[in-house]
Amino acid sequence: MPFVELVSVTAVLQFFFFGAMTGRARRDSGLKAPAMTGHDGFERMYRVQMNTMEMLVALLAGLLIAGKYWPEWLVGGLGVVYVVGRFIYWRAYVAQPSTRTLGFMLSMVPTLALLLLALVGIIQTWL
Rank of each mutant, 00 (worst) to 15 (best):
Q49P: 01
H39S: 06
V83Y: 03
G19F: 00
V94T: 11
F18Q: 06
G121M: 03
G121T: 07
G38Q: 05
I88F: 13
E5N: 11
T101I: 03
S98T: 04
G38C: 03
L116A: 15
F87N: 15
G79S: 03
L114C: 11
V57I: 04
G77L: 01
G41H: 10
M1H: 05
S8E: 01
V12F: 11
W126G: 12
Q49E: 08
A33T: 09
Y82N: 09
V120T: 13
G62K: 11
L31T: 04
L106F: 06
Y89T: 04
M36T: 07
W90F: 13
Q14S: 14
A33M: 06
A25M: 06
V4D: 01
Y69E: 08
S29V: 07
R100Y: 01
Q124W: 04
F3T: 10
D40H: 12
A95P: 04
V83G: 10
V109F: 08
Q96M: 13
V81T: 11
F17L: 14
L64M: 15
V57D: 05
W73R: 15
S107A: 06
H39D: 15
T125A: 13
G19S: 15
G85Y: 01
P110C: 02
M1E: 06
G62E: 09
R91F: 10
L74Y: 01
L63Y: 06
G85W: 01
A113I: 10
L115Y: 05
L59V: 02
L56R: 14
M21Q: 12
W70R: 15
A35Y: 00
G19R: 05
L64D: 09
M21Y: 02
R24S: 07
L116Q: 12
R44C: 11
Y69Q: 03
V57G: 11
A35V: 00
A61V: 15
E72I: 11
G85R: 07
S29Y: 03
L117D: 01
L59P: 02
A61N: 08
P34A: 10
A11V: 10
R44Q: 12
V12R: 15
F104K: 05
E54T: 02
D28I: 04
G85F: 02
S29C: 03
N51K: 04
D28P: 02
L13H: 11
A113L: 14
T101N: 08
Y89P: 10
A118F: 02
L56S: 10
L74A: 04
A58Q: 13
L127M: 14
L6H: 13
G38E: 06
D40Q: 14
G121Y: 05
G79Y: 01
V57T: 07
L112F: 12
G23L: 04
Q14R: 14
V57Q: 08
I122M: 11
F15Y: 13
A118W: 02
L78F: 02
R47T: 08
M36L: 08
G77T: 04
A20M: 13
L64T: 14
T52W: 00
Q124R: 15
T22Y: 07
G103R: 00
F16A: 09
A92N: 12
P97L: 04
I65T: 03
L63D: 05
H39Y: 05
I123T: 12
M36Y: 01
P34N: 12
L59N: 09
L102Q: 06
L78N: 03
E43M: 08
V9N: 06
W70S: 14
V12D: 14
V80F: 05
P34G: 11
L106G: 09
G23F: 00
V94L: 00
G103A: 02
N51W: 02
S29F: 02
Q124G: 13
R47A: 05
